[in-house]
Nucleic acid binder design. Sequence first.
DNA 1: GACGATCAATTCACTCTATGCCATATGTGG
DNA 2: CCACATATGGCATAGAGTGAATTGATCGTC
Lengths: 207, 207
Amino acid sequence: MWHWMPYTCLRHNVAVPDLSLKERKRIAIRRDLTAVALELFLRDGYENTTVDQIAAGAGMSRRTFFRYYNAKDDVIVGKWDLIGLDMITALEERPQDEPIWDSLRGMYDVVIQHYADPQRREQSLAVDSIVAATPALRHSYLARRDLFEGIVTDLLVKERGGDWLVVRAVVGAVTACVEAARDETLQTKPAMLGPAIDRALAAVRDA
Amino acid sequence: MWHWMPYTCLRHNVAVPDLSLKERKRIAIRRDLTAVALELFLRDGYENTTVDQIAAGAGMSRRTFFRYYNAKDDVIVGKWDLIGLDMITALEERPQDEPIWDSLRGMYDVVIQHYADPQRREQSLAVDSIVAATPALRHSYLARRDLFEGIVTDLLVKERGGDWLVVRAVVGAVTACVEAARDETLQTKPAMLGPAIDRALAAVRDA
DNA sequence: GACGATCAATTCACTCTATGCCATATGTGG
DNA sequence: CCACATATGGCATAGAGTGAATTGATCGTC
């Protein structure tokens, strides 16, 4: 019942150079919905905002909202799918003979870049603050992260071979480092994200 | 709105040697509920089982069910809180000057022990199979794991000092190794859990 | 043994998410 | 202008979760 393969779906959207009018319309409406939702969530909190309010704010019925996002949390957590897409693309462009540890570190440069852009950063920090304040959204985020780790692991195993257990463990370990760095730096000193990631990675490697 | 500090609460229950009749009753009822739920979930699946059915099966109303478990998934995922308690106890008994990496590895012996006991293993494998088959429960499990990692990190930082970022990263990395080992071994070859954990840890350390 | 207090359980009503179904509107191409 | 596909809205429903008031059982006290 959960989202119809977000990554492959979105990837298709990105791969096709010029999207059809219909698809562009769809993306625009989704953007509208997230914008409205973000505003309401920041003002009233996630739990105190109903889907009806979001839908009404974007000028549509609740039923239509669920045609664009299959769950209330998707409207906010779905953003990560797009970043995840970029990360996977970045990972695939890495040289095949590179140690996966380094490939993964390189993959996460996408996130660092993302937060380096002031435009995106402001938006993302707002999202992060809502997620941090809402257990339910934190759960959704963790679920997405888990899904993402699985996809990355499968990709690496398929393209480079190797033991699934080992690859999965390394993917999880690197992700844990990034996550720790995110938690520590993001709200107060987002510029330090990169160094924090490297510090965490170094700590794990010679722990 | 989420669970009233499961760990501290349960710890209190365990610390106090003889529980009051009321509390023992409460624990017994919770056990009944999980037993009924487990049976229904295995037969019909998690999504196809309503809270009403579980409550009726245990001879109570839905409202009363929610007095014992604050959410439907708690009835199944809540088991991990107890193991988590044992793990934290095991961690606290570790020598203070031991490298945290080793302390954490020792802490996870509790899980290995748990699956070594044929009695508990059968029960836990049933739970695991349901969780594996149900995305929603997987999400709940991830949330519990995240909470647990936070508690462990805070404990280590408080008792041994050190950089939060580093401790959190190491905790996450070790947990990721255990999780990978669990995923690979549990359903098919549970006896190999210990070796798999060590293999994953070794792989991360000299990746 | 009766009485009153206390706490658990039940009942009822309600909100909100999510989904299926069918009618209707909004285009789009012939 | 019409037929057709698709997007949308409205309606109905199931199920999770919660609050409030009521009933009921248990226990100490006299």
